[in-house]
Design a protein around this nucleic acid. Sequence first.
DNA 1: CGAGTTACTTCATCTGTCAATGTATTTCTT
DNA 2: AAGAAATACATTGACAGATGAAGTAACTCG
Lengths: 111, 111
Amino acid sequence: MSISADTLRGHTDTILLTQLLHGDHYGYEINKRIQTQTGGKYGFKEATLYTAFKRLENAGLITSYWGEDGPGARRRYYSITDEGRRRQAENCQEWLETKALLDALIASEEE
Amino acid sequence: MSISADTLRGHTDTILLTQLLHGDHYGYEINKRIQTQTGGKYGFKEATLYTAFKRLENAGLITSYWGEDGPGARRRYYSITDEGRRRQAENCQEWLETKALLDALIASEEE
DNA sequence: CGAGTTACTTCATCTGTCAATGTATTTCTT
DNA sequence: AAGAAATACATTGACAGATGAAGTAACTCG
């Protein structure tokens, strides 16, 4: 993974919430999707992933349930709550501000 | 400060190095400059600021010296090293990648 | 059957942030 | 001139997120 995690720290929750916007998914799947979407440049470590899910659930931003019988039986699916959607939108907005801010502060800076 | 520090965590060093690209400055001054540049939206807490300087100095990315006597309180000036410049450029590049990555992951995501 | 993949879980540790506290000088206000 | 506020730096303990490591267990494919 070529991007250091510290640069993305604080965005974990937003990334995960975003993945759940359009339907329920399970952890391993989500991580694979992220890796695909970033061309293999980024993915969560397992510990990071599952502690994040726990954090989000404790905060009431997602709920979870075990999959039905079959090959999905040992998969824990996550579902975003209304509050989760609200939070995702907020964080999305904050990302725009953060981007502007950092662009201003890190720019090659001619001045 | 309207932007949460966690969203910027990991960028502190880059921000500080950037401030030193065009000359030596002291901590308090740098922080004021950042607050000005961000329209008051962001600034470092003192503990964060000075521990960051210490970290950068230990890493050989900056050096420091006490300012000459004169008006005002005693000031410790910081100077960026060659390695610091190299690192700043690297981090700058990484920021571009991070931005693209997060834009892809956090986007409203139609698909 | 055995190796590799899928899938989740927990724990100890590391690092960066920050509240709190302290020191000391200078400048502004009245 | 006294007192308040700003300037300027420093340290400490606590906390939160990320991670390495280790573990468990079922499925899949040759």
